Amino acid sequence: MFRINFEADVLLALVGQQELGSAWLHPISYAIRNALTQGVPIDNIVLLLLLPLVAAVIAASRHLIGLRGFGIFLPAALSAVFVATGPVVGIGLFLVIVTVSTFSRMLLRRLRVKLQYLPRMALILLVVVLAVLAILFVGPQIFGRRELAEVSIFPVIILVLLAEDFTRAQLGKSIRIAASLTVETLILALMSFVFLSLSALQEFALLNPEIYLLMVLGLDLFLGTYSGLRLLEIWRFRKLIRN
């Protein structure tokens, strides 16, 4: 089961105490109530509600700050994995998978093994799976962390499958650029993890989904029309700007 570390009991209590007005003004709130009565886990609802904000935060980091990373999907998926596994275990598995997939690709290129794209990715995935299995087998004994033994399988599968996206994103790039993008992706994922973990934000999104989604929509529209300098660009060209 994909476990999300939200305070489900607290959120359910807040939803139960909330008094809703007209269904015309609160259609999503009523839909959430109906979904909860049908047995949909509140963790899943909260995570889905927060994902658009995570995407907007990643977009803002790109357009306002200048952090690139590997697109939106990869850091967003990583942030969800970090919520499920915890940041320490998630980052550890992430680094293992990225390192193994990168070195596997480099080794195949060094050995001049000519394979079609999909068989090559299947081979890299095989190596990544073996590395993750080794970590899960010996990690609890060597590192003394019970979290590795208790981690849910689905976050691990997501991390393993992300190896293809990282490998594809690294194609045609130097090791330095690929490493820089990987670090920036990790930073974006950790930033998104912080937003996903904020109890106040979870409660606001769950209790006021209409207002929350409109705010996210407004942020997306603002980012889409922003054409100014990014913070990293201002820092890079600060001497020219001063002159």
Results as ranks from 00 to 15, higher is better:
Ser79Cys: 08
Gly16Ala: 13
Gly71Asp: 03
Leu12Arg: 14
Pro52Arg: 09
Ser29Val: 12
Leu64His: 05
Ile72Lys: 06
Leu36Met: 10
Leu49Tyr: 06
Leu14Asn: 08
Ile124Gly: 06
Ile91Phe: 11
Tyr30Pro: 01
Ser22Arg: 09
Leu25Trp: 10
Pro41Glu: 09
Ile45Cys: 04
Ile42Phe: 09
Pro87Phe: 04
Val113Ser: 10
His26Val: 04
Thr85Ser: 15
Ile32Gln: 02
Ile65Gln: 04
Leu51Trp: 00
His26Gly: 01
Leu78Ser: 10
Pro119Trp: 09
Val46Gln: 01
Phe70Ser: 05
Thr102Arg: 04
Phe73Lys: 09
Gly21Thr: 03
Leu107Trp: 13
Arg105Thr: 15
Tyr117Val: 15
Arg112Tyr: 00
Gln116Ala: 15
Ile124Met: 09
Val83Ala: 07
Arg105Asp: 15
Ile58Phe: 00
Leu49Thr: 03
Gly90Ser: 02
Leu50Phe: 10
Ser101Ala: 14
Ala59Lys: 11
Pro52Thr: 11
Val46Ser: 02
Asn44Ala: 15
Phe70Thr: 08
Phe70Cys: 07
Phe94Gly: 00
Phe103Leu: 14
Glu19Cys: 02
Leu74Met: 14
Ala59Ser: 14
Ala13Cys: 01
Ser61Asp: 05
Ile42Pro: 06
Pro41Gln: 07
Pro27Gly: 06
Leu20Arg: 15
Gly21Leu: 04
Leu93Met: 14
Leu74Arg: 05
Leu107Ala: 15
Pro87Arg: 03
Trp24His: 12
Tyr117Ala: 15
Arg120Glu: 15
Thr85Leu: 15
Ala76Met: 15
Pro87Met: 04
Pro27Ile: 08
Thr99Phe: 10
